[in-house]
Computed example of a mutant assay.
Amino acid sequence: MKKWLTTLTASSLLVLGGCGDVGEEEDKGGGESSGEALEVAVIPAQSAGEMEDGLDALESSLNESMDREVEVDHYPSYNAVVEALNFGHIDLAYLGPLTYVIANEESGAEAIVTQEIDGQPYYYSYIISHVDQPWDSLDEMLEQAGEVDFAFGSVSSTSGSLIPGLELRDRGVFESEEDHDFASVRYTGSHDVTANAVANQEVEAGAIDSAIYNELVDEGVIDDSEIKTIWESEQLYQYPWAVPEGMDEETKQQFQDAFTSIEDEEILEIFGGASSFVETDHSNYESIAQAAEDFGMLNMESIED
């Protein structure tokens, strides 16, 4: 039975992880203890309620495909997933690329699966604005930066924070939530909240994942005719599913086989409107690791070449 984790925090996971070396080593390399369920964790890319049905279907699908019981949990924050992965309390985690490279650096987490959108494993960071705003490009908007309330997603989001934050820093208008040239800066915590804040003109502009934005449009949550995209990043490799360091090859392969065989639209839809799941590896996320280093978020000495 899936547990919906609404109160678990990164600090509570640190307490679990610090209960003793023996317990930690027993948990490391998930999938080796055949008597326990495999734990799969998903980050809050969208509000939990909007993902619940799809995650229920994913749990059922994995239980049919794997030779072990599988539980799928929707975690409350990016940091909670990273800490759980680092301490071996979960066996597979769906992470944003930035969150993944942090986990890779801290504990050797390994990307094994990602998703394709319309047959391509890429997405973009968008900066969006309401059509009523008097600008049609980022350059034009930044001429009036002092009048702009700007929204990022989660501070740990690749497309909702890291990549647009780097762009705005390079343009000399943003360093941090406290140091910027905007009227205000806020972190909404999720892409759908950012989209609605722009659509309702609670903010003048916001950063969002392109695949999630398109999904919100397709579902009728956002009216595309009311929104304009004023900036688009270069290609970003899609969100990875990662296992803890030391997981046995048999379990990794079972996860890969189970995901790449999924055709259920209810499952695919909640992952950015994916067309399929495909295998991946760490090499596809090295550009994100470099971006994270540029923003002072990683010690690159521990990132593999």
Rank of each mutant, 00 (worst) to 15 (best):
E50W: 05
L5S: 10
V40I: 04
V40D: 04
G29D: 05
T9P: 07
D21P: 12
S47N: 11
M51R: 03
G23K: 14
L38F: 02
T6D: 07
L38D: 02
E26Q: 15
I43V: 10
L58P: 00
T6W: 06
C19M: 14
G18V: 05
A45Q: 06
V40M: 03
L8N: 02
L58D: 01
G23Y: 12
A41V: 07
G17T: 06
G49I: 00
D56E: 11
C19L: 15
P44S: 06
G20V: 06
K28I: 04
E25S: 15
L13S: 04
A41Y: 06
A45E: 10
A57K: 01
L55S: 00
D53W: 02
E36G: 09
G20W: 10
A48G: 09
Q46A: 06
L13F: 05
V15A: 12
G31Y: 05
G23D: 08
G31A: 08
G29E: 03
L55P: 05
S11V: 08
P44K: 05
L16V: 13
L16S: 12
V15K: 15
A45W: 06
G54D: 00
A10K: 13
D27L: 14
S47Q: 11
E52G: 02
G29Q: 11
E50C: 02
L16F: 11
S33W: 11
Q46H: 08
E25G: 11
L13N: 02
G20N: 08
C19Y: 10
G23A: 14
Q46W: 06
V40C: 04
G20Y: 10
Q46D: 09
L58C: 00
L16T: 09
I43H: 04
Q46L: 11
Q46S: 09
L38G: 03
P44N: 07
S12M: 13
M51A: 05
A45L: 09
L16W: 11
M51I: 00
G49Y: 01
G49C: 03
